[in-house]
């Protein structure tokens, strides 16, 4: 279903013009850069969803008819409020699998914190932190590999 894409397209309907207006009225670079980055982020998410959901892309594509009709139809499909109730979700998460418990999330978080503290206290803490992080990531990933 394309509603997930429309969700971000509707966001762009507000964010693109407000970015332009902000730049025109303020000429302030920091805020404008942040708004532009936000627009790029929204576009990137839309791209990611479309990449994984051909059904959504097909639903949003322009269809046959006159120029005005095609344009209105495209706008309606892009940001309209009607959702097809029979369409599949755009992202297939696969079957619901429940992993068993794992110590690696805790160990990985702890190692990142040790490494982060190492940036404050010095390399005597940073290096063990990075070593611990490497071990934790290895443990996490090899646990996945056994599946």
């Amino acid at each position: 279903m394309a509603e997930e894409v429309r969700f971000f397209l509707r966001g762009l309907v507000y964010l693109v013009p407000i970015t332009v207006v902000y730049w025109l009225v303020s000429k302030e670079p920091a805020g404008t850069a942040l708004l532009v980055a936000l627009v790029v982020g929204f576009v990137a998410v839309i791209g990611l969803v479309l990449l994984h959901a051909s059904s959504a892309a097909a639903e949003l594509r322009p269809r046959s008819g006159g120029i005005a009709g095609r344009l209105l139809g495209a706008v309606n499909r892009a940001i309209g409020f009607h959702e097809r109730v029979d369409a599949p979700p755009p992202l297939e998460g696969g079957p619901d699998l429940i992993p068993t418990g794992s110590p690696w999330p805790l160990i990985t978080a702890a190692s990142i914190v040790v490494a982060g503290l190492g940036l404050i206290f010095g390399t005597w803490l940073l290096l063990p932190g990075l070593a611990l992080l490497a071990w934790a990531l290895l443990g996490w990933l090899t646990q996945l590999d056994r599946a």
């Binding site: 079957p95 619901d96 699998l97 429940i98 992993p99 996945l144 056994r146 599946a147």
Partner: peptide
């Protein structure tokens, strides 16, 4: 989606 040994299937 990859999951670890001992995973169970949910929903139902």
């Amino acid at each position: 989606m990859t999951a670890a040994q001992g995973d169970v299937r949910g929903r139902g």
